[in-house]
Design a protein around this nucleic acid. Structure first.
Lengths: 171, 171
DNA sequence: CAACAATCTTTTCTACTATAATCATTCTTC
DNA sequence: GAAGAATGATTATAGTAGAAAAGATTGTTG
């Protein structure tokens, strides 16, 4: 327990220019959210045989059936290649089916199976009951602060120009 | 909950119970932040030979030298096993050294190399200049909304009991 | 001192993520 | 109708992530 080295690195605690301080704070906040997210995802996997990204994907598929991989990727803010793995796992669990479009065989429509629909219907709350309770207990203002704070962060990081897959029909 | 036998599942657009709606909104906001974070991390890797998790780790190592792997994991909210890979990459880039404690050879103290300190000193802003500008342009209230919103989210997801290793009296 | 417990790091395994390259299919143009 | 562009899904590759288990070392106890 004793601080061993005791070599005098005459290293000042660093000026901490305020900006660095804030960056660190922000960096850690983002990491905490990401870690909590991953953590909960693993817990979910233990209890429900499905991870959070998979559930999010499945929810999107149930919400609107027959979407293409590309569409789904836009919906849940993931890249197309990421979807492949997620869809593979959902398919091997028989929660979705890949249906090739007979008219345009490049496209593959994703439809949920009965089991997939059931799972979403009985969906465990994506963030967990403890979160739901804690969130519900917040004041309206705090709830908005949370949601808008997150969205603001996302906007700022992604840059104002690239705002999701909105109907930007310019190809 | 107990859904009475649904005889009419003719694919209505789904009731969207408000809660589901909000969950989806939140889920996507988190995903957007994570995606933006990863995206920027890759860009950073191209320009600075270091990814965001690596930079965060290195910053922690420079801020307080000689920490053990476990300590650092706590500081940056990662698991111990995750740190191994990050430290491996930092070490192979010769930005840190692993120094075995002579007294307790289980422990390994992480110290930055000169190159590591230089890199942090000349640190590219972790979130990028565009973000910095956009953030600085926000009102004080909005800035706080962003930071506190993120932290609130992390608190709620992690649960109130596990509140990071905040060593208020440590330094 | 030998057996066991505790602690710290690393390895192994699975999953998620993105970019770039590849494959299959359709559309366009001549 | 064939060459080439365009579009959609997938694979290849690499970084990141956590859990579980293994490895190494130290401390404790009989």
């Amino acid at each position: 327990m004793n601080k061993p080295p005791a070599e005098d690195h005459r290293r000042r605690p660093a000026p901490k220019s305020g900006k660095v301080q804030r960056d660190l704070e922000l960096l850690r906040a983002v990491r905490r959210v990401m870690q909590a997210f991953d953590l909960h995802s693993h817990q979910l996997a233990s209890s429900s045989q499905i991870t959070l990204p998979q559930l999010l994907c499945l929810m999107a598929v149930v919400a609107e059936e027959g979407m293409t991989s590309r569409r789904i990727a836009g919906e849940i803010f993931a890249s197309a290649s990421t979807l492949v793995g997620v869809l593979d796992r959902l398919e091997s669990k028989q929660l979705i089916d890949r249906v090739r479009d007979p008219r345009d065989r490049r496209q593959i429509h994703i439809v949920p199976t009965e089991a997939g629909r059931r799972l979403v219907a009985a969906a465990p709350s994506p963030f967990g009951e403890p979160f739901d309770r804690a969130f519900a207990a917040l004041s309206e203002a705090r709830q908005r602060q949370l949601v808008e704070g997150l969205e603001l962060m996302a906007d700022l990081m992604a840059g104002p120009e690239e705002r999701g897959p909105s109907s930007d029909s310019g190809r």
